[in-house]
Design a binder for these strands. Sequence first.
DNA 1: GTAACCCTTGACATCCATGTGAGGGGCAAG
DNA 2: CTTGCCCCTCACATGGATGTCAAGGGTTAC
Lengths: 122, 122
Amino acid sequence: MRIGELAVRTGVSRRSLRYYEDQGLLVSARSPSGQRHYDEEHVRRVRLIRSFLAAGMSSGTIAEMVPCMAEPSRGRAERALVLMGDERERLCSALDGLAAARRELDRLIEVNRRYLAADEQS
Amino acid sequence: MRIGELAVRTGVSRRSLRYYEDQGLLVSARSPSGQRHYDEEHVRRVRLIRSFLAAGMSSGTIAEMVPCMAEPSRGRAERALVLMGDERERLCSALDGLAAARRELDRLIEVNRRYLAADEQS
DNA sequence: GTAACCCTTGACATCCATGTGAGGGGCAAG
DNA sequence: CTTGCCCCTCACATGGATGTCAAGGGTTAC
C-alpha cells in the first residue's frame, strides 16, 4: 500500500504521515523510485501515534517510546520505561483535569438552565 | 489587587492574564491611570479559564460560554447552552481518548517490562 | 506514447497560547 | 526628588502539527 491508501485507511493526511516519518515515528519501506510502501502493521502504528498525539504527547516523546518496539536494546528500553512512567503520570493528571473541567461545565450548564427557566416564568 | 498579585495567586503569567482580557474572558476594573484591579471573584474566574483551556477549549469558545454569567440575556444563554452541550460532548470524547491512550501506554509498559526481564535472564 | 493520477522533496503559511523586549508612565519609601 | 518596582501598550517571536503550493518523477491503462 502506498501513502495515499494509508492516508485513507487511517484518516490521516499524507502530509502528516510524511511528518511522522520525518520525526522518526513511522518507518516506511521505499520502492527503488523512492515511493513509500506500507503494510497492515503500519496501519496499527499510525493509530497508536494518533492516539498518543491526541493525548497531548509531543512527537519527540512518542519517538522515544514507540520505536523501541522495533529494535529494542537494553538501554533504550530502560530510558523508554522511565519516560513512559512520566507520560503515564501526565496522562493521569490530564484525565483528572478533564474530569474537573467537565464538572465545572456541568455546573455552568445547570446555572444557565435555571436562568432560562426563571426567564420563562416572568 | 493588581495584575502582579493575581498572577502570583493564580500561577498565571501577567502576559496571559492580559491576553485573557483581550479575548474577552476576563474583565478588569481600571484605575484612573489605566492599571487593572481585581478581586477574589477574578481569582475564581481565572481558575475556571485555566481549567477550560487545559481541557482543550479555545479562548473563543470560552469567551462565548463564560461571560454570559456576567450579563445574561435570553439569546446569549440559549446560544451558550448549545455551545456547552457541544463542548461537553467534546470533553467526553477527549476523556475516552485519553483513557484509551493510557491503556495503550500500559500495554507498552508491560511489553517493555517483559523485554527487560527476559534480558535479565540471558 | 500519452493521459490521468499517484508519488517525491522543499519551503513557506497557519493557528493559538505565550514569551519577550522596547519605550514609557504610576506610586510608595527614603 | 529620586530610586525601585510595578504597571501600561505595541509588536515581533516561538513551537508543534498541519495545510498548501511548486516543480518534478513514477505507474498504469488505453
